[in-house]
């Protein structure tokens, strides 16, 4: 293949990616609008528009602004956050199985929630932010533990080593969680399992405000760093040869992935399957270039979680994370069986 050919395929790929992203954006917006109409109480599109612009009854106002809108926005943010976190990790580890769970994020957050339910919960002081903060703390400490164990002087963070250590730490935390949950009473057990399955229920504007800065800051950061992610993907030798400070970049990118997934887990629980499928589908649609891959993954993740959450809150009593896997996994398997 000669150079002109490469640049032709390159530009064709870029055009294709832009079309894909446009379509996805339209889909997200459509899903957003449909989601505003749907729920236990249906609102007609006209009512939605009226309410949005200040009209509508008090009841419609309450449903839309206090219940539905924050939850929809949180779904979008969480989907995008997990997917980008997964995209960074799959790029960094060069392992298609990598997802935010590997950083111990779900396990750490889950353990803190279980500990809280086991020992601390008193129903009198229901602090809105206590549980998310604890979950975030758990997620961050698990990730830091994995970093510390995986870090090697002179060599830095090596992907394979980190994956193995991540899996092991996860298994250990999960074991501790099993021991704790078996001792819970049935009602608390139910609460913990719903949390672990990933539930966006109980969202309000305060959560939106808490989550938004993370997503707004870290997704663009990941996009700025996408060039070094591409280079790291070529392998350490090559990256070093091209003059990339591999260790520094790797640590920054990992920190971004932890921040994204940790903040999402704190608000939404374990919906991390998005972090596995989002980036995969993105890679299949737009190729391995992270400049294109990351925004596509973000859109796909947002779409998947938004659709799943709309289904979860309208037609079932199940946590959103379960619906995400029920929709996402078969589609993922279908893709896997089709492409070469």
């Amino acid at each position: 293949m000669n150079p002109t050919n490469i640049s032709v395929t390159e530009s064709r790929r870029r055009t294709r990616a832009i079309i894909v992203m446009l379509i996805l954006t339209i889909l997200v917006i459509t899903a957003f609008i449909i989601s505003m109409n749907t729920g236990h109480i249906r609102l007609s599109p006209l009512d939605v528009v009226k309410t949005m612009f200040g009209g509508g009854t008090d009841k419609q106002h309450l449903i839309l602004f206090e219940f539905r809108l924050p939850r929809i926005i949180i779904s979008v943010l969480i989907g995008a956050g997990f997917a980008v976190s997964g995209a960074i990790l799959q790029g960094l580890f060069r392992n298609p199985l990598a997802d935010p769970g590997l950083l111990g994020i779900n396990a750490g957050a889950g353990l803190m929630v279980t500990l809280y339910i086991s020992f601390l919960r008193d129903n009198s002081s229901a602090n809105l932010f206590l549980l998310p903060l604890l979950a975030l703390g758990g997620a961050a400490s698990a990730a830091v533990l994995i970093f510390m164990l995986a870090y090697k002087r002179h060599k830095g963070l090596l992907p394979t080593r980190m994956i193995l250590i991540g899996v092991a730490v996860q298994a250990g935390i999960n074991a501790a969680m099993v021991v704790l949950t078996l001792a819970l009473d049935p009602e608390d057990y139910q609460y913990v399992s719903i949390w672990l399955a990933g539930s966006i229920a109980g969202s309000n504007w305060k959560y939106v405000i808490a989550l938004l800065p993370w997503i707004i800051a870290l997704i663009p950061f990941a996009m700025i760093k996408s060039r070094s992610l591409n280079i790291l993907n070529l392998g350490d030798q090559m990256a070093k040869g091209l003059g990339t400070p591999i260790n520094r970049d790797r640590i920054w990118l990992l920190a971004a992935a932890v921040g994204l997934a940790g903040s999402c887990v704190a608000i939404g629980g374990g919906i991390s399957f998005v972090g596995l499928v989002g980036p995969h589908l993105a890679r299949r649609l737009v190729g391995p270039q992270h400049q294109l891959n990351i925004p596509t993954a973000a859109l796909l993740g947002a779409l998947l979680v938004l659709v799943a959450d709309t289904i979860a809150r309208s037609f079932s009593s199940l946590p959103t994370g379960i619906i995400v896997a029920i929709i996402g996994a078969p589609y993922f398997l279908y893709l896997l069986s089709k492409t070469k």
Binding site: S193, I322, I326, A329, L333, L336
Partner: peptide
């Protein structure tokens, strides 16, 4: 990959059943 996806699907289905029927 297929193993991870199938696992995720089955785990989701079984935790859905567990949560709905409270047999977890």
């Amino acid at each position: 990959l297929a193993g991870a996806a199938v696992s995720a699907l089955f785990v989701a289905l079984s935790s859905g059943i567990q949560i709905h029927y409270k047999v977890g």
